[in-house]
Simulated assay, not measured.
Amino acid sequence: MSIIAWIVVGIIAGFIAEKVTGRDHGLLTNLVVGIIGAFVGGFIASLLGFEFREGFNIASIVVATIGAIVFLWILGMIQGRRGR
């Protein structure tokens, strides 16, 4: 996937994950969360046996968004434990 596609998918996935989890991030944070989410989502999808084409498509956005939500959930769990 080209770097521009990674950026666009990352921003979209990060934005959707932000809205689903009720957080409030900026554009750069959404990008980072979305790209990390793409790795997490890809790892989860491969563990479950899913195969999909890489690139800028709906499947990539869905996988990256699910990964970003999982990443934000784990991050929230870690931050919640530190706050106790």
Rank of each mutant, 00 (worst) to 15 (best):
F39V: 06
G80R: 13
S46F: 04
F71T: 08
R82A: 12
I69D: 00
G67M: 03
A17Y: 01
G41I: 12
M77N: 13
R23D: 13
G42E: 03
R82N: 14
F71P: 06
I16W: 10
I16G: 01
L27E: 08
L27W: 13
Q79E: 11
R84E: 14
G22L: 07
G34V: 11
R84S: 10
L48I: 07
G10L: 02
V9G: 00
V62I: 15
S60D: 06
I11E: 04
V8W: 03
I61P: 10
G49C: 12
R84D: 13
A68C: 01
A17M: 06
W73R: 06
I11P: 05
I74W: 06
L28N: 05
G49V: 12
L28T: 13
A13H: 05
W73Q: 07
R81V: 14
L27P: 11
T65P: 09
V63I: 12
I36P: 00
Q79K: 12
A13G: 05
G67F: 05
L47E: 12
F39W: 15
I58G: 15
W6Y: 14
M77P: 01
G26R: 11
L47Y: 12
A68G: 07
L47F: 15
G83K: 10
G34S: 09
T65K: 08
E18T: 07
V33S: 11
Q79S: 14
E18M: 11
I7A: 15
F71C: 04
V62T: 02
F52T: 02
A38S: 14
G55E: 07
A45R: 04
F71K: 01
G26Q: 08
I7G: 11
K19I: 13
V70E: 03
I16C: 11
R23S: 13
I16A: 10
F71L: 03
I16S: 12
A64E: 10
A45H: 06
I44K: 02
F52V: 07
G83E: 15
G37C: 10
A64Q: 05
F39Y: 04
E54Y: 05
I61K: 02
G22Y: 08
V62D: 02
G37Y: 02
V8N: 04
I12D: 09
E18R: 14
I11N: 11
S60Y: 01
G55W: 00
W73D: 05
E54G: 09
V33E: 09
I35D: 00
I44Q: 00
G41H: 01
L31Q: 01
I66N: 02
F39M: 06
L47I: 03
T29M: 07
I61D: 06
R23W: 10
G26Y: 03
I78F: 07
A64F: 08
S46L: 05
I74S: 06
G42S: 07
V8S: 09
A59T: 15
L27I: 14
W6N: 11
A17W: 05
D24M: 04
T65G: 09
I58F: 13
L28K: 13
K19Q: 14
F50P: 00
F39N: 08
N30W: 09
N57S: 08
V40S: 05
